[in-house]
């Protein structure tokens, strides 16, 4: 099985049969995974910053990454009405000031962008003091989440 790592700040779309997209140790980063089981196309964006910091920045903001994710998926045959969308990550400390609560800001930015585009999530595992690893089989209908000391979770 081909394993495709999606690094932080990156977006990957695949239609390869039998492949699996995965991201490790998300921290406060937020993974947005989408899958069209009919077209057998899946993608994952791992967002780190709500907005691009400046023009020279190598790390895109949520809006740029979601645009890239869905544009690439549609170009490979995915249809918006078939999409199963999952969110994982956005961990936060037990208590943290708003200015450092980057996970919460990422989550909010992603939800706003999805809502504006008429998209809903099928499953979410976000927030809390949990460092997550997430994966999705290309064309699959579930996202798998693993954490230290916790059972594997299927969304």
């Amino acid at each position: 099985m081909e394993q495709i790592l999606v690094k932080k700040g990156k977006t990957v779309v695949s239609d390869k049969k039998g492949a699996r997209l995965f991201t490790v140790s998300l921290g406060s980063a937020l993974a947005i995974a989408a899958s069209d089981p009919v077209a057998h196309v899946s993608g994952m964006a791992v967002c780190v910053l709500p907005k691009k910091v400046d023009k020279t920045s190598a790390v895109p903001g949520v809006l740029e990454q979601l645009r890239e994710l869905f544009k690439e998926m549609i170009s490979k045959g995915a249809k918006p009405q078939n999409l199963k969308i999952f969110l994982a990550g956005a961990a936060g400390f037990l208590s943290e000031p708003d200015e450092l609560a980057i996970g919460k800001k990422l989550y909010k930015a992603v939800l706003v962008t999805l809502k504006k585009n008429g998209l809903k999530t099928k499953g979410e595992h976000v927030g809390g003091p949990l460092n997550r690893t997430a994966s999705l089989h290309v064309g699959g209908e579930n996202m798998t989440i693993t954490m230290l000391d916790e059972k594997e979770i299927q969304l």
């Binding site: 490790v24 921290g27 406060s28 961990a91």
Partner: peptide
């Protein structure tokens, strides 16, 4: 927050 080398005490 960037998830590098996070142990069980992490967050």
């Amino acid at each position: 927050q960037l998830g590098f080398g996070v142990g069980t005490d992490g967050f």
